[in-house]
Computed example of a mutant assay.
Amino acid sequence: MATNGTQDTHIRELDKKISALSDALAHLGQGTSLKELLRIIRFPGYTTPAEFAFNVAILDTMLVQANALEKLGQDLVAGAKLVVGKQ
Rank of each mutant, 00 (worst) to 15 (best):
M1K: 12
M1Y: 10
A2R: 13
T3Q: 02
N4F: 13
G5V: 11
Q7F: 15
Q7R: 15
Q7V: 11
D8A: 15
T9A: 15
T9Q: 13
H10A: 15
H10D: 14
I11R: 05
E13A: 12
L14F: 15
L14S: 12
D15A: 14
D15K: 14
K16W: 10
K17P: 00
S19T: 13
S19L: 10
A20I: 04
A20D: 12
L21D: 08
L21N: 13
L21Y: 10
S22L: 12
D23S: 15
A24M: 05
A24S: 07
L25A: 05
L25S: 07
L25H: 04
A26R: 14
G29K: 01
G29D: 00
Q30S: 09
Q30C: 07
Q30A: 10
T32W: 13
S33M: 15
L34G: 13
K35N: 04
L37C: 02
L37S: 05
L38E: 12
R39C: 01
R39I: 03
I40F: 09
I41W: 02
R42C: 08
R42M: 10
F43I: 07
P44T: 04
G45R: 08
Y46V: 13
Y46H: 11
T47L: 15
T47C: 12
T48R: 01
P49S: 09
P49Q: 07
A50S: 14
E51G: 07
E51F: 00
F52M: 08
F52P: 00
A53V: 03
F54A: 10
F54P: 00
V56E: 06
V56H: 02
A57G: 00
I58L: 10
I58E: 04
I58D: 04
L59H: 07
L59F: 07
D60T: 11
D60N: 11
D60A: 09
T61L: 12
L63N: 06
L63T: 08
L63R: 11
Q65K: 13
A68L: 09
L69P: 00
L69H: 01
E70F: 07
E70D: 14
E70H: 14
K71W: 07
K71E: 11
G73D: 01
Q74V: 03
Q74Y: 03
D75R: 07
D75W: 04
L76A: 09
A78Q: 06
A78G: 02
A78V: 05
A78C: 02
A80N: 04
K81G: 02
K81Q: 13
L82M: 05
V84Y: 02
G85W: 01
G85T: 06
G85Y: 05
K86I: 06
K86A: 04
K86T: 03
Q87N: 01
Q87M: 02
